[in-house]
Amino acid sequence: MIAEEPLSTKMNHKLRSSLPEILVTLPSLGWLTVFFVVPGVIVLAIAFKPAGAYGGIDDGWTWETIRSLGNPAYPSIVWRTVWLSAVTTLACILLATPTGYYVARSPLRQRRWLLLAVIVPFWTSFLIRIFAWKVLLHPDGILKRTLVALNLLAPETSLLYSSGAVLLVMVYTFLPFAVLPIFAAAEKFDFRLTEAARDLGATPFQAFRRVFLPGIRTGILTAVLVVFIPALGSYVIPDLVGGPGAEMIGNKIAQRTFVDRNLPHASALSACLMLAVLAPLLVLLFAPVRFRNRDKTGDGL
């Protein structure tokens, strides 16, 4: 009789805890299923549908749309998307690592203001920041005039509407995203380790590369992913500061949707981009397990 009681309370407890779990999970789970999973499935399905007249979608199934992605124009756009994103990521990491290091090493009061200075552009409107560069790079803009006056640039060179302009503005836009995770990792780094390395005869650069960098590698990995993945999907930046020669996949998707009204084609391109994103995402999906385990020991992100 005595042994029975704990068992029944345990069962009761299990029943009681599963209903609240479902009640508290269902709203977000349901919402994201309807507005995130279902749309993703629709995109994949429509990629195999024939395009109808007047922007419609016809019945039946076809490989035609997928096959048309082999059209010579596409591989070059995919290639440009990948290299622009990769170079942007590299530049962001190269700039964010010393910045994150410096901010983490500065005294507490100064650190708070430096961090705020990095966060402000992060909170200001994305379009306004792109527009600011459009003004700077404009043929009558201050940057072009200065460079021409200093004889560093031929007057007929265009700064705007090129892959270079897209790259510059992408680095500008994504840099705060890279600084924050690297700073977060650097702030938790025990700087006595680099000091010990110096005491043992390492040069400052060796201490930085062999001790500090491995110490903040999770921060760097996060920074790579939060820059590279959104960069792959860039649409507004190439649209506003890149010319016809600097288009990325995002622009083609928008063009197929709004201009050509060819939804199957836009879907096929979206599916393509989804695959491109999925590759680094797989790394990310395995990484959080490690982050979360580290969190429990108190030294994670």
């Binding site: 999970t25 977000s28 789970l29 994201l32 299923t33 507005f35 995130f36 999973v37 279902v38 749309p39 993703g40 629709i42 995109v43 429509i46 992913l225 939060v226 993945i229 959104p230 792959l232 999907g233 860039s234 649409y235 996949i249 995002g250 998707i253 928008a254 949707t257 939804l263 836009a266 879907s267 979206s270 981009l273 989804m274 994103v277 995402l281 990310l284 999906l285 959080p288």
Partner: peptide, 23 residues
């Protein structure tokens, strides 16, 4: 649930916009 919450954070906006439009 965690995967479903996490994925939208890393999906490019163009994809989300396009797929919601189709929905």
């Amino acid at each position: 649930h965690y995967m479903l919450i996490y994925t939208p954070l890393v999906v490019p906006e163009v994809l989300m916009g396009m797929s919601l439009l189709l929905l």
